[in-house]
Design a binder for these strands. Structure first.
Length: 494
DNA sequence: AGCCTTTGACCAGCG
DNA sequence: TCGCTGGTCAAAGGC
C-alpha cells in the first residue's frame, strides 16, 4: 500500500513522464505569448566581454545571415537538428502568423549558468507538425508531408527569411484551420485563410482578431522547478484571482490575470504535490509591453528563469467548444521522453543548440535556452539551428564553424556563434554586427586555442587573437570603415 | 491606500 | 435535468 503510494508520488514528480493529451502531466510550463525567436534566442549569452577589442569589417553584407534554406539544409544534416528546425519553423512561423507581441523577462541574470534550463521537448500544436512516436526526424524529413510543408520555402529562393517563414506559417495555419473546420464545420476562419498568402502579424490583426486569438506556449521545465509561491517571473505582473482544486491533482490550480489594465492575458499554474510548479498555461496576448520597472524578486535565481518553448497552441474563441481540449491536448514529437539536465557547454550556453543523442533518437530534440531576461520586441523571428556543414572562414587564421546565431537586445542584426573546428579546441567566438553600424562587427572570443593556426591558413589570417592577451584595446583597421571591436576573452570553459 | 492573496460561491460546459 | 468539473467572481483580509 505504502509502496503503491510511493509509486504514485513518484509519478507525480515534475520530471515524471506521462503521455499527453489529457493524460499528460509531463511537467510543462507554457510561456507567455511572446516571440518564439526571442524565447529561443534572447538573453544569457553566456559570454562575457573579453579584454581586447579590435576593428574589423568582416561582414559587408547584412545578408550574411543564413537563409532559411540554409538553415533547413543544415538541419537536415542532423536528424535532431532537423527536428528542431521543424519545430522552430513551426513555432516561429506560428508566432509570425499570430503575433509580434512583446516578450518578457528582464535583465540577464548572471546566475543563469547555474540555473539555465537544460532541456526540453519540441512539440507542435495539433494540425501543424505532428511527429508520431517512433518516427524519427530523419523519417520526417523524408516524408512527403514534411516537404509538402516546406516546399513553398524551398521553391522560393530569393525570398527573404521572413517571407519564407510566412509561407510556412501559411501552410501551418492552413493545416490548423482545416483541422478546426473539420471539427466544427459551421465555423470559418477567414483571417487565417487570408494568411495563406500573407500571414498577418499581431500588429496587423484587427482588435477583434486579436481578441479572438489565443496563443498558448508550452514549455517544459526540466530543472529549477518553481517552488516559490509565485510561478516564474516572466516579466509581467500578475494577480491571482482564483484557486481551484482540480481533479487528479494534489495541488490546487491557481489562476492569474495580468494586472495591466485591459490586458486579457491569464495564466494557470499547476503544482505538484511537493509544491513545484509543473505547468503554467498562458492564455491570450499581452496588449502591452512588460513593465520595465518590474521588481526583480529572484534572490535564488528561481524567478526569471524560463525555458524554451516546446509547444505552441492556438485556438480561436469561435471554437470555445473545443477550447478546453485544444488547450490541454499536447502533441509531442517523438516519444514521451524527458531529457535530464545537461551540462554540455554547447547546449548550455547562450544559444539554442541541438544535441543529437542516439539514445534519444525519438526524443524530439534537446534545445536549451538561457534564462531569458531580456525584454524586447522581435519583429522578425529567427531560427537558430546547429549546423554542421558550414565552416566559417572569417579570416582570423583559425577555422570556425558556425553553430548558431541570434538576435540580441538593441541590435537589429543577429550575431553569429562560431566554434573552432580544431578537434579538442573549445574556443568559440561570436560575431555581432554593431548596433550603431551594420557594417561593423564585434567579435568576441572565448577560450584559448590549444593549437596553432592551421598551417594552410597561416599566411592568410589577419586578426588572430592573441591567446595570452588580457588587455583591452581598440584598433582601427580601416579608417574608412566603422570601428568594430574584437574582444578577446580568456577564461576557463567549463 | 493600493495591491495582492485567499476562499467560498457562482456560472458555464459537458456527458 | 442533473451532477461533475473547470473557470471566474468578489468579499475579506494581509502586507
Amino acid at each position: 500500500m505504502a509502496e503503491k503510494e510511493e509509486q504514485e508520488q513518484q509519478q507525480k514528480q515534475p520530471l515524471s513522464l506521462k503521455s499527453s493529451a489529457g493524460a499528460s502531466s509531463r511537467p510543462t510550463i507554457s510561456l507567455p505569448p511572446r516571440p518564439f525567436g526571442e524565447m529561443f534566442f534572447s538573453g544569457g549569452v553566456g559570454f562575457s566581454p573579453g579584454p581586447m577589442t579590435l576593428v574589423s569589417n568582416l561582414f559587408s553584407d547584412p545578408d550574411e545571415l543564413k537563409t532559411f534554406s540554409q538553415l533547413l539544409a543544415g538541419a537536415m544534416a542532423s536528424p535532431a537538428a532537423a527536428a528542431v528546425a521543424a519545430a522552430a519553423v513551426v513555432a516561429t512561423a506560428h508566432q509570425t502568423s499570430v503575433s509580434s507581441a512583446v516578450g518578457s523577462g528582464g535583465d540577464v541574470d548572471p546566475r543563469f549558468k547555474q540555473n539555465r534550463p537544460t532541456g526540453l521537448m519540441i512539440t507542435q500544436p495539433p494540425g501543424m507538425f505532428t511527429v508520431p512516436p517512433g518516427l524519427s526526424p530523419a523519417t520526417l524529413l523524408d516524408s512527403p508531408s514534411f516537404f509538402g510543408l516546406f516546399s513553398p520555402v524551398q521553391g522560393s529562393f530569393g525570398m527573404t527569411h521572413q517571407q519564407a517563414l510566412a509561407q510556412v506559417t501559411a501552410q501551418a495555419v492552413h493545416s490548423n484551420s482545416v483541422q478546426s473546420q473539420s471539427e466544427d464545420p459551421s465555423s470559418t476562419q477567414p483571417e487565417q485563410q487570408t494568411s495563406l498568402t500573407e500571414p498577418p502579424s499581431f500588429q496587423d490583426l484587427s482588435q477583434a482578431q486579436r481578441d479572438t486569438m489565443e496563443v498558448s506556449v508550452y514549455e517544459h521545465r526540466l530543472s529549477q522547478p518553481q517552488t516559490a509561491d509565485k510561478p516564474a517571473d516572466d516579466g509581467y505582473n500578475w494577480r491571482k484571482y482564483g484557486q481551484k482544486q482540480v481533479k487528479g491533482s494534489d495541488f490546487p490550480r491557481s489562476y492569474y490575470k495580468c494586472t495591466h489594465p485591459a490586458c486579457p492575458v491569464k495564466k494557470k499554474v499547476e503544482r505538484s504535490r511537493d509544491g513545484q510548479v509543473t505547468e503554467i498555461i498562458y492564455k491570450g496576448q499581452h496588449s502591452h509591453e512588460p513593465p520595465q520597472n518590474k521588481t526583480k524578486r529572484d534572490n535564488n535565481g528561481s524567478s526569471r528563469s524560463s525555458d524554451v518553448a516546446t509547444q505552441f497552441q492556438t485556438s480561436n474563441s469561435g471554437h470555445n467548444k473545443n477550447k478546453r481540449d485544444q488547450e490541454t491536448s499536447q502533441v509531442t514529437t517523438g516519444t514521451e521522453q524527458m531529457c535530464e539536465a545537461s551540462d554540455s557547454e554547447e547546449v548550455g550556453n547562450a544559444e539554442t543548440s541541438v544535441e543529437p543523442d542516439p539514445k534519444r533518437r525519438n526524443m524530439e530534440v534537446r534545445v536549451t535556452e538561457p534564462v531569458t531576461s531580456t525584454q524586447r520586441t522581435v519583429t522578425e523571428p529567427r531560427i537558430i539551428v546547429q549546423t554542421t556543414s558550414e565552416v566559417d572562414l572569417l579570416d582570423d587564421g583559425f577555422r570556425w564553424r558556425k553553430y548558431g546565431q541570434k538576435v540580441v537586445k538593441g541590435n537589429l542584426y543577429p550575431r553569429s556563434y562560431y566554434k573552432c573546428t580544431t578537434q579538442g579546441c573549445g574556443v568559440r567566438k561570436h560575431v555581432e554586427r554593431a548596433a550603431s553600424d551594420p557594417k561593423a562587427v564585434v567579435t568576441t572570443y572565448e577560450g584559448k586555442h590549444n593549437h596553432d593556426v592551421p598551417a594552410s591558413r597561416n599566411s592568410s589570417h589577419q586578426l588572430r587573437p592573441n591567446n595570452n592577451l588580457h588587455n583591452t584595446s581598440t584598433v582601427n583597421l580601416n579608417q574608412e570603415q566603422p570601428v568594430a571591436r574584437l574582444r578577446l576573452k580568456e577564461e576557463k570553459i567549463t
